[in-house]
């Protein structure tokens, strides 16, 4: 066990965990932030996507010891009350089926739109390709990303 201080959703936060604990489990088990999901544990599905200094990263393979000063943003910190343009677009398009993958999808989309404010369909598909939706909401996700791009 070791104590770590992380910059999480704009707050300095202390946790006492084994250094190799992935950020995913620190968030879920130790900080009760469960919006970041577990789907594969090997960086294949994107369910655990968070932002590290505004870049989309997989929390399931990111040991807490490798994060120092960087700014961590989880879905809970993306906006107050779900008002980020990507979240709003997700609601407008009623994207979710089971909903399990969607926080990861939203985090990937939000980071992507920061880099590319006006993406083509192909660019959206490529940017989102690492996020599996087992329920098959891909066409709605694409439409929602386009709406978010327009509204941001």
């Amino acid at each position: 066990m070791a104590e770590f201080t992380i910059n999480l959703n704009g707050k300095s936060t202390k946790v006492d965990v084994a250094p190799n604990t992935p950020l995913l489990w620190v968030l879920r088990d130790h900080l009760d932030l469960v919006g970041t999901k577990y789907g594969c544990g090997i960086a294949q599905c994107g369910a655990c996507t968070v932002h590290i200094d505004d870049i989309a990263m997989r929390a399931c393979t990111l040991p807490i010891s490798q994060i120092s000063e960087q700014k961590i943003t989880t879905i809970e910190g993306l906006s107050e009350n779900g008002t980020h343009p990507v979240q709003k677009a997700w609601l407008e398009h009623d994207v979710a089926q089971c909903g399990y993958c969607q926080t990861g999808q939203i985090m990937t989309a939000a980071a992507f739109l920061k880099d590319n404010a006006n993406p083509s369909d192909d660019e959206i598909a490529r940017a989102m390709n690492g996020n599996i939706c087992r329920c098959g909401t891909y066409t709605r996700i694409k439409a929602a990303v386009k709406t978010a791009a327009k509204n941001q």
Binding site: D32, L33, G35, K37, G82, L91, D94, Q102
Partner: peptide, 23 residues
């Protein structure tokens, strides 16, 4: 009517909803 998913808001904000989130 096209009524939106009643859990929509919770889903997009990552609130506890699923079995894995239960504590």
């Amino acid at each position: 009517q096209g009524i939106k998913n009643v859990d929509g808001q919770k889903i997009v904000t990552g609130q506890p909803l699923f079995g894995l989130d239960y504590k």
